[in-house]
Every structure is written in C-alpha cells, then in structure tokens.
C-alpha cells in the first residue's frame, strides 16, 4: 500500500522532479565559462593537492596501495554526501515562496537536491576511473584492474544515496525550525571529513577510535568501494548487509521525521 502510494506519486511528479533538477543544474553553471567541466576538474584538483601533501606522510602504511585511487574513492563519495546534504539544508526554506502558494508534495524538494548532486557525482566518476586506469605501476603492485565485482558498485551508490537522502530529509526539517543548523552542519561536516579515512589509512588510528569509525556509514561505503577498485576483492556479505541497512534505515528515519513535521513547515516561513 505504502510502496504503491510512493510509486504512484513518483510517476505523477516525475516531470516536476526533472524540472527541479534541471533548474538547479542551469543555475549552478550559469555564467561559468567551464560549466559542467568543473565537476570533473574539482575532484582532480582536490586530489592533486591532497596527494601532494599527504602521500609522503602515510607512505609506510600504504605499501603496495595506489594512493591516488585511495584518495579519489574517498573524495568522490564524501563530496557527494557533503554537497547533497548542504543543498538539502535549504531545500524547504529556499522554496517557501512556492510552498506557500501552490500545493506540491514537499518531500520532492530534498529528493530533487539529492538527485541533482547525484548527477554531479556521476560526472566525478570520470576523473575517478581515469585515475584508476591510468595511474599505478605493475611492478610495485599498485595497478588497478577492472573486475567482476564492479557490478556491485551501483548497489553501493544506491545505499549511499539512501543514506544521504535520510540525512537530507532530517536536515531540511530541522532547518525550518532552527536556522542555526546551516552553520552547525558546516562544522559537523568538517569534523566528519577528518573522522572519515579519506586521505589516511585507518590503521594509523588507535584501535578504540578505529572501532568507532567503523560505525560511520560513509566509511562503510568508501571502504567497500576500495575493496573492489583497489584490491579486486568482493566485500564480505556482512559488510554488504551493513551497507544496505545503514542506508535503508537512515532513509526511513529521515522520511518519517519529515512526514511527521511537514504540515507545520508553513508556520515557520
């Protein structure tokens, strides 16, 4: 019943969803010379800077690992999460003029923001796979190869999207009532950035901290990607279940909170 309802609504508002995503896209690259090329250049530049600074620092713990690929997998996943959640913060408050005048199901706004960031994310896969297949040295064992487990990657993306969506729904709701969330989230994201092993190997941390970080869903997603891309290994079934559940449960909780509060939004415009 509920699933049928959601499906029905998605079909009904598919066109609106695409129009909203298109709008964000057009506005983002308006008056920019390189436009969508930035989606490709940005992760490459970020990676270069980080590689320049950190590759020597963590050399001893990363024997036989392609550091550039290690960095890129972490960067693209984290950047997606950070961009999507940042956009979601104002998904409702930024559309108040609309919500106030026309009836539109409100859940469509955070969804549009997450999908819009998702399109950007797909562009960042270009530099990621460029680095995967171009860099590396066979003799040192740092060369990465295409393998059958790549088929799992879309599933990991889907779980990342669900997780991000859940957080996005929660944040967009919270911002309506307390606008300070916008600033607080900026700080939290920075902290999360350091507590997600993006540019360092997790083994350099004390074991108690490692245990905590393993509960960070973003680490789960990034790590599963690395298993496949860097080591041509299938992540364990246990990991895959954790990947799915962390995404799915977060999404359900976020949607539940959003649904519960959405009728009150209009009083806080």
């Amino acid at each position: 019943m509920l699933i049928k309802n959601i499906y029905h609504n998605l079909v009904k508002y598919k066109f609106l969803l695409t129009e909203l995503v298109k709008r964000d896209f057009k506005i983002k690259y308006k008056r920019s010379v390189l436009g969508v090329l930035w989606s490709i250049l940005y992760p490459l530049l970020m990676m270069s800077v980080m590689a320049l600074i950190f590759s020597h620092m963590f050399k001893f713990n990363m024997e036989g690992v392609n550091f550039l690929v290690y960095l890129m997998t972490g960067l693209v996943i984290f950047n997606y999460f950070s961009e999507a959640t940042n956009n979601c913060l104002t998904a409702i408050t930024g559309n108040f003029s609309l919500i106030n005048k026309v009836y539109i199901p409100k859940y469509i706004f955070p969804l549009a923001k997450c999908l819009f960031a998702g399109i950007n994310f797909l562009f960042t896969l270009i530099p990621l796979f460029l680095i995967v297949f171009v860099t590396g040295n066979e003799i040192e064992g740092t060369k990465c190869y295409l393998n059958i487990y790549y088929l799992i990657i879309p599933f990991i993306f889907l779980c990342t999207l669900m997780f991000t969506l859940g957080v996005g729904y929660f944040l967009s709701t919270l911002t309506v009532f307390v606008r300070d969330v916008i600033y607080i989230w900026g700080i939290l994201l920075t902290i999360l950035n350091y507590f997600t092993p993006i540019f360092y190997p997790i083994v350099i941390l004390p074991s108690w901290l490692q245990a905590i970080i393993k509960f960070n869903p973003l680490y789960l997603y990034i790590n599963s990607m690395r298993e496949i891309i860097l080591f041509s290994q299938m992540p364990t079934i246990k990991t895959m279940i954790a990947v799915f559940l962390s995404g799915f449960i977060t999404m359900i909780i976020g949607m539940f909170i959003f649904k519960k509060k959405q009728d009150k939004f209009i009083y806080y415009a």
Binding site: F15, L16, T18, E19, L20, K22, R23, K26, I27, K30, S97, L98, N100, K101, V102, I104
Partner: peptide
C-alpha cells in the same frame, strides 16, 4: 510564485507547468 528569476521565460513555462 513558481518562477525562478534566473531562468528564461521559455524555461519557466516548463518549470511552472510542472509545478
């Protein structure tokens, strides 16, 4: 209410129509 000032009239017809 559903117009986005940055978009052209042509684009807004589609956006507003979708809304």
């Amino acid at each position: 209410a559903g117009f986005d000032g940055e978009l052209t009239a042509r684009e807004n017809i589609y956006l507003n129509g979708a809304i």
